[in-house]
């Protein structure tokens, strides 16, 4: 089983050279720490920044410079600032190549739910509904099952949806899965030491297993 850092490390391998990427809050934020040296990537923060750098030193902290998770950050050489309308303009114009975000549930046709639990938690969708409606590629980073041990990979989402037919790939503590255009979670890789049987038990939606499933490789 992978810990959060290892999930982030595995997702980092999905990032293409010369791409613009938006990272959601939580595990996705950790992905920035594992980008291979030979890959050029530009991180977008939807509150109005391209070229987001690492967290600042104590001396560099600037209240006017934060990321979409409201954390203080820095700008890399070549960074650009803009307002919220332009930020979502570039998202909807599909200038952002990849969105990585967390989820409470994903369905076998790629629907995602991650913004509301009726009667319990209402924090809002923030920029998630925009990102999932328009990003060219969407990868979900999440735990395979919830705190009660119930699968989060379902035939249909039970929670209010964030977007429909949009998730392309999921990386969990157990596996890497592709969401097929015709529906179904295709098992691509197992976490080291995790059996196909374990993944089957943790997946309530349609799971497609073809041939030997390799273990994930970390460089």
């Amino acid at each position: 089983m992978l810990d959060k850092e290892a999930i982030a490390k595995r997702i980092a391998k999905e990032i293409q050279h010369n791409s613009y990427v938006n990272l959601g809050i939580g595990i996705p934020t950790l992905v920035a720490n594992y980008i291979p040296k030979n890959i050029a990537v530009c991180f977008q923060s939807e509150n109005g920044l391209l070229g987001m750098g690492p967290f600042p030193t104590e001396a560099e902290v600037d209240a006017d410079l934060i990321n979409a998770g409201k954390q203080t950050i820095t700008m890399l050489p070549g960074a650009a600032l803009f307002d919220s309308a332009m930020s979502f303009g570039m998202i909807h114009a599909q200038k952002i190549d990849l969105t990585i975000l967390g989820a409470m549930e994903v369905s076998e046709n790629g629907d995602i739910a991650n913004w509301k639990i009726p009667g319990k938690m209402v924090k809002g969708m923030g920029g998630a509904m925009d990102l999932v409606a328009s990003a060219k590629n969407i990868i979900v980073a999440m735990q395979h099952v919830n705190k009660d041990g119930e699968s989060k990979l379902l035939p249909n989402c039970t929670l209010p949806l964030t977007g429909i037919r949009c998730v392309k790939k999921i990386v969990t503590e157990l596996a890497v899965l592709a969401v097929l255009p015709e529906g179904g979670f295709k098992l691509l890789e197992r976490a080291p030491g995790v059996s196909v049987e374990t993944i089957k038990k943790a997946t309530l939606g349609k799971l497609i297993i073809e041939g030997e499933i390799p273990e994930m490789v970390f460089d």
């Binding site: 930020s87 209402v122 920029g127 509904m129 949806l161």
Partner: peptide, 30 residues
């Protein structure tokens, strides 16, 4: 609660004298 891009675009529309905008954000959701 409305999508963040929708919030920005509805402000933008007002500032540009446009009565409305079209967005894919929220399609298929409540």
């Amino acid at each position: 609660l409305i999508p963040q891009g929708t919030l920005a675009f509805r402000c933008m529309a007002a500032g540009y004298g446009m009565p409305a905008i079209f967005t894919p954000a929220g399609i298929g959701t409540e």
